[in-house]
């Protein structure tokens, strides 16, 4: 039977372990620090919301061009384009005009969802190709 002193030590150890759990959780949660101004609608949007420009901070051609492509694939969208107004400003402007059936915000949201779907397909297909293990492990040498 353990002495009282040992018991105390065990409970203390549990407490310390608990504390550490909390610490790691807190650290994991604070990683995505997102600016509340990450995306804004620029002044000059049409009153019915079918045409609008967005300013997205901390984004560049990586998301800009991918998003432009997927939004242009929407048949309700008349125009979509992006620009980086100045290279020393970490901001990207996105312009969406629709034919009137949906708003620019809806077109953007659909674009984001479609891009997530696209990434999911690429991810699963790539993982499948890797798991098949039927590839070479060294660079083929030409003879």
């Amino acid at each position: 039977m353990p002495s009282k002193k040992q018991e105390v030590e065990v409970s203390e150890a549990v407490e310390i372990a608990d504390q550490e759990m909390v610490d790691t959780e807190a650290l994991e949660e604070e990683i995505p620090v997102i600016d509340s101004n990450k995306i804004q609608i620029l002044p000059g949007a049409s009153e019915d919301g079918t045409a609008a420009s967005f300013r997205i901070l901390q984004e560049d051609h990586t998301l800009g061009n991918a998003l432009r492509y997927i939004i242009m694939k929407n048949p309700e969208v008349e125009f979509c384009g992006y620009s980086i107004p100045h290279p020393s400003e970490a901001a990207m402007n996105l312009r969406i005009q629709t034919y009137g059936e949906i708003t620019a915000v809806q077109a953007l949201e659909k674009g984001l969802d479609d891009l997530v779907d696209l990434c999911n397909v690429i991810e699963s297909e790539f993982k499948e190709a890797i798991s098949k293990k039927d590839y070479e492990t060294s660079q083929p040498i030409d003879n």
């Binding site: 991918a66 990434c119 790539f126």
Partner: peptide, 19 residues
């Protein structure tokens, strides 16, 4: 794979904003 996940994450972050 990380690059695919990161592009996805970029979209999901923007999706959270109520415009």
């Amino acid at each position: 794979l990380k690059s695919v996940q990161l592009l996805k994450k970029k979209c999901e972050i923007l999706r959270k904003f109520n415009l």
